[in-house]
Design a protein around this nucleic acid. Structure first.
Lengths: 248, 248
DNA sequence: TTGTTTTGTTCTACTATTCAGAACGAAAAC
DNA sequence: GTTTTCGTTCTGAATAGTAGAACAAAACAA
């Protein structure tokens, strides 16, 4: 076993617990949640406070996360290696199709929108960076999962209740592209393909979205080829990058 | 002096350094940056890795932040007490003016967009949550700074090079509202007022933005009164909340 | 190639820090 | 008024982090 700072790990777990709580929480409740002595939590939280990661509501004597994490999160996303590499590809996809382009990564049961590019023209629906969506709720997610190794795909499938998802997955695997002419709740269409690294492991998905009214059968072949070619060049053009995150 | 986990604090500083770097970085460079022994950094970074906060690029043997922080950041922002309290006020402002409404907090030399609301209609420019902008680049920031205690304002002014900013600040202080008919780079107008707590300390700024073409002198008085009244009710309506973050 | 420097990683004895439970007054709840 | 829960401080004992040396593997220079 590798040596490491257990104190640091415990503190981070504590921070996660505070974040997960979603509202200000007191020492005792927190100690119960993470199963640690009160005095211990009290000391650790002092460090988090000193570091500026949590605020203290003096009136209710409760702790809640400060905005520091939110700002660090933005920086992380902005400088994420994948993002830097993928952005030019997305811009090209926007130029080719005139629609918004997106790149997503899998994280647990969700897809995270790591990078987005949109046309200069006015758009109705905007996807913010690092938005997290259930994979089965978007073509990007379906495209990604369709290309996963069987065991991983099975594990994800076991946890979903969407009845038609298996058909959609099968169609996507056959065509190499996930199509969604009209999103269930948002009035948009989606077109997405998995992105593979040089060794054929899936690392994400790339795709475009736009108003459903622009889901035109005549334009479809061109758009499909634009998306698939974007997926192809996505990482062959940037081989210098590593195989990806080793977590998640 | 209060007792606290110094290991945790050191680890967080390390994490901050990795995030600040903006690109993958090795152990030695990192150790130099934070002025700590290599072996020390190595051990701490193992914990960060175990926690899923940093990834390891095996090829270059360099470390970079994972997307975990980005996702935690989103959660933090979504559940931030200020945000919850201010959102209804913003929605009302949107209803009254038909333009996008925003609430910002000061953080260092920047304003952070903590909460945003926008009309149902299509909008060209969208401000994402927790966007960070230099205060002098937006009317929201000018409104906030104009209401700061003299010493704080002077400190911020000393660090800016924008020549016309003093005039703008003076006008804002006189009128109680910051106006910007046309943004320097983006084609929008801005209208903003400082938000004070019950004890007359500034805690943020509230305002609206929209296309410059809609900066109509006839509508201006109504919009100004809408913004100022929103600033007034912003925190009298939510006295239950504490005075705010104790950091920043 | 060869030699030199820098890198990431492991090991160690020393020491400082965290641990866990008890104890406390102050609020809340009953 | 009593009991429970709360946040906080205090301990000795035990553990975990410290800093420097040592190492092989890369990267660099000549």
């Amino acid at each position: 076993m590798v040596k490491m700072d257990s104190t640091l790990l415990k503190g981070l777990t504590l921070l996660e617990a505070i974040v997960a709580e979603g509202h200000p929480i007191g020492i005792s409740a927190l100690a119960r949640r993470v199963d640690l002595p009160k005095s211990n939590v009290h000391r650790s939280i002092s460090a988090l406070r000193e570091g500026g990661y949590v605020n203290f509501d003096a009136e209710s004597r409760r702790y809640y996360p400060s905005l520091k994490l939110a700002q660090m999160g933005r920086r992380v996303n902005a400088g994420f290696p994948f993002r830097m590499a993928i952005l030019p590809v997305l811009r090209e996809l926007v130029a080719a199709t005139g629609e918004s382009a997106h790149f997503v990564l899998l994280d647990g049961d969700s897809v995270v929108f790591v990078a987005n590019a949109r046309p200069d023209t006015t758009v109705a629906s905007v996807i913010p960076d690092s938005l997290s969506l259930r994979w089965e709720d978007t073509a990007l997610g379906v495209a990604l999962v369709s290309a996963l190794p069987p065991e991983d795909r099975a594990r994800l499938l076991a946890r979903t209740e969407t009845p038609t998802i298996r058909d959609w997955l099968a169609r996507t695997e056959r065509d190499g592209i996930a199509q969604l002419p009209r999103h269930a709740t948002r009035r948009i269409f989606e077109l997405a393909a998995p992105v593979r690294s040089g060794w054929d492991t899936v690392i994400g998905a790339i795709g475009i979205t736009g108003p459903s009214m622009r889901f035109d059968d005549a334009k479809l072949p061109d758009r499909i080829s634009a998306v698939t070619s974007a997926a192809r060049i996505a990482f062959t053009a940037h081989e210098g990058l590593s195989a990806g995150p080793d977590h998640g």
